[in-house]
Design a protein around this nucleic acid. Structure first.
Lengths: 197, 197
DNA sequence: CACTATAAAGAACGAACGTTCTGTTGTCAA
DNA sequence: TTGACAACAGAACGTTCGTTCTTTATAGTG
């Protein structure tokens, strides 16, 4: 048994595509097709290495399922894809979310914890989890996740004298008028909140 | 093959208990234990009747999974249990929610669509889905689902001169001072919102 | 008492699955 | 040229699963 290597990174990528919208439980035979190989035993060897590297794990049923960090490398550090059961650490306890509506474009949807209360008047609180669909463009009035000073910020998209601005839903926060191009990460499509017990 | 009968209602009840916090995929052999019988073929006959009655269905993998109305009879019409993958029709699209933290007491947790804006200052909007843990009692400061005039209402629990009152988070709504016993349905433990696309 | 429907047990069988072991390439360095 | 190793392919085996068929026990009814 060898270690995780560059070849395994290819298989990891294929497995990510598979898990992004899996409709059936993976078996070694079906994963042969996913990997494009013919050997069940080699599939097992690959999966074993991927699990030793911490990307997947086995349920008590023996089913290979992805772990939290499975998709982490391809996304921002705080973002986790929806469209499949993933765990998001939002304060205490874990929250699992599957959104059927989002399954169509699963890799485009991420969950991002909300920090601060700049959108509190829109009912979006500190600690809420935002369900965000990754898109480059948005419409005026949409609540968007924009990248300002290389940080995520959640604001309402608006237009002022022909230029896009980011409007907070909190009087205490200033309107953001970005110089040049406005970099939009995605559009808010859902929200999840958790009350402490 | 006979129709759904009273005996099947017993099995339905046992199946509800099983699905409330299933940790493994059901097989005919494992469901023998759930039902307390020894015959796989009879398990299949039972499941077939339950599916014809609309309580469960089979996935393309052949796995028996509960349908939406599976738990409906034991709960209020608008309430659906969390703790397992269920579908909640909240406006457009379906929303699937599993909450690991709630799995411990799954049958006690329900999802209830929020109507009205009496809690809007607490960031709870019309159309949001409230995750409610069914409890008879609550603490002052908790947001509770109470039954007032045989209707669900979501308010903050407070105390005034030794008596419990229900305080809305909206100036336009009055404080509710129930006569006699205050009937509490449950405590708000989570919130889910969905923005139209 | 005989008859019949219901409720369940149990055997039998093939297909699918996971696991292990052995065999076959291809590559690369010594 | 040979040896070693990585990257697979494929056979073999035991187990589990779902399905179907047959048989048995129980309860009710005329």
């Amino acid at each position: 048994m060898t270690d995780f290597n560059s070849k395994d990174a290819e298989y990891l990528s294929k497995l990510q595509d598979y898990y992004a919208n899996w409709k059936s439980i993976p078996s070694y035979a079906s994963l042969c097709e996913v990997f494009g190989i013919a050997s069940k035993s080699w599939v097992k060897a690959i999966l074993t290495r991927l699990s030793e590297a911490g990307f997947i794990e086995r349920t008590p049923d023996g089913i290979w399922v992805p772990m939290r960090q499975f998709f982490a490398r391809s996304l921002a550090e705080s973002a986790v894809p929806a469209g499949m059961p993933v765990s998001v650490n939002s304060g205490q306890g874990e929250l699992f979310v599957i959104d059927e509506m989002l399954i169509d474009t699963p890799s485009k949807t991420t969950l991002i914890p909300v920090k601060g209360d700049s959108m509190i008047e829109a009912g979006i609180h500190d600690g809420d989890v935002a369900v965000v669909e990754k898109r480059m463009s948005a419409n005026v009035g949409d609540i968007v996740v924009a990248i300002v000073d290389s940080e995520f910020t959640l604001k309402t998209l608006d237009k002022e004298r022909g230029k896009f601005i980011l409007r907070p839903a909190n009087q205490a926060y200033p309107v953001i008028r970005p110089q040049g191009m406005l970099e939009i990460f995605g559009v808010l499509v859902g929200l999840i909140r958790k009350y402490r017990k």
